[in-house]
């Protein structure tokens, strides 16, 4: 154990030191080889200067570009290519992987569930986030309340799954329920249920976990936006006798629509990639399969079907494309 800690520390030193050494070394090397000191004409000096300074940006950005290319850009094209090939990526099979996807019952269930997730999770996370941010804005214990709601953001999806699986726990009809949800039901005289294996509704129980995690994110971003709403518009509305809810819907929300959209899209992207929760809670059983988990499954199922796995990844990618386009467009507008 001590050995592993030492080697981990060594690895950190080695990796970070190696990176630092690269940057320092490359810059020093550039300064040496293309030095503009010594005997030369002004023209030569200028040429050297400009050559040197046109190379330097690529030293700065080179490692990043290389890593981005290997780990993100190349894989996008490779996945696309693989999706038109068979399980081992050896022979071209046309669109048959996509045809398989359209008729595969698991894939269809996944599409249905992903649509449900996309509909429910961003809406409720943003909704709860907005509500809590607005209600705690001027509460004397608002800061504490916000911190507590924010806390689940630090918890891993697997950890959160354990937490909620415990809430949903079912003990049969004998003995006390130790799951909070069934205990509350029993207290109201209702029948306890094995919630996780109850098709269709169990999807919503899995969604609750992500909503629980993401509401804090929405709350923080929207809270900052709410604080940016001009004081005088709120005061004017209060003078007119508007209720707090009217003020939220008529004054606050219209002024923070762009932020709401950003929060919404950020959570949407996250939802498309949701994997850990489904794997940990049900592994797709009882009709809870989603695309990301199905993809993971096909990566290894029967020795791994890279064609079908890639096809599912491409489907997820296509769903992200509109958001990607919109993000780039907005970033370019910001630059101007």
């Amino acid at each position: 154990m001590i050995g592993q800690i030492t080697s981990a520390l060594m690895a950190i030193l080695f990796a970070v030191g190696g990176c630092a050494l690269f940057f320092v070394g490359a810059n020093v090397l550039l300064d040496r080889t293309l030095s503009s000191r010594g005997h030369m004409t002004d023209l030569q000096r200028q040429q050297r200067d400009s050559l040197r300074e046109s190379i330097r940006p690529w030293i700065f950005i080179g490692p990043a570009v290389a890593l981005l290319t290997i780990f993100l850009v190349y894989p996008v094209f490779k996945s696309l290519w693989l999706s038109f090939h068979d399980a081992n990526g050896e022979s071209f099979v046309g669109v048959s992987n996509y045809q398989w996807a359209l008729t595969d019952p698991e894939f269809r269930i996944s599409i249905r569930n992903n649509l449900l997730w996309l509909l429910v999770v961003p809406t409720l996370s943003t909704g709860f986030g907005l509500l809590i941010a607005y209600m705690t804005d001027r509460l004397w214990w608002g800061q504490i309340a916000r911190s507590l709601v924010f806390l689940p953001m630090a918890i891993s999806f697997v950890g959160a799954s354990v937490i909620w699986k415990f809430v949903y726990d079912y003990r049969g009809t004998q003995g006390d329920q130790i799951g909070l949800m069934n205990a509350i039901l029993v207290a109201f005289g209702l029948e306890p249920q094995a919630w996780i294996s109850l098709p269709f509704w169990n999807n919503f129980l899995l969604m609750v976990i992500l909503i629980w995690i993401q509401t804090g994110f929405a709350m923080v971003i929207l809270g900052a936006a709410i604080r940016g709403v001009p004081e005088d518009t709120l005061e004017a509305a209060q003078m007119e006798g508007a209720s707090p809810m009217q003020m939220l819907f008529r004054i606050v929300i219209p002024q923070i629509v762009p932020t709401i959209v950003v929060v919404w899209t950020t959570i949407t992207i996250l939802v498309l990639k949701v994997f850990d929760i489904v794997l940990a809670m049900t592994n797709g059983q009882w009709d809870t399969e989603v695309l990301a988990n199905l993809m993971f499954d096909w990566m290894f199922r029967g020795g791994g079907d890279f064609g079908r796995g890639s096809t599912i990844a491409v489907v997820i990618m296509i769903a992200v494309l509109p958001i990607m386009y919109w993000n780039i467009k907005r970033a370019r507008e910001d630059e101007q």
Binding site: P75, S79, L272, F296, V320
Partner: peptide, 9 residues
């Protein structure tokens, strides 16, 4: 926003 899933395989 490129999903991690694209890179896995």
């Amino acid at each position: 926003v490129v999903p991690l899933q694209m890179s896995l395989i």
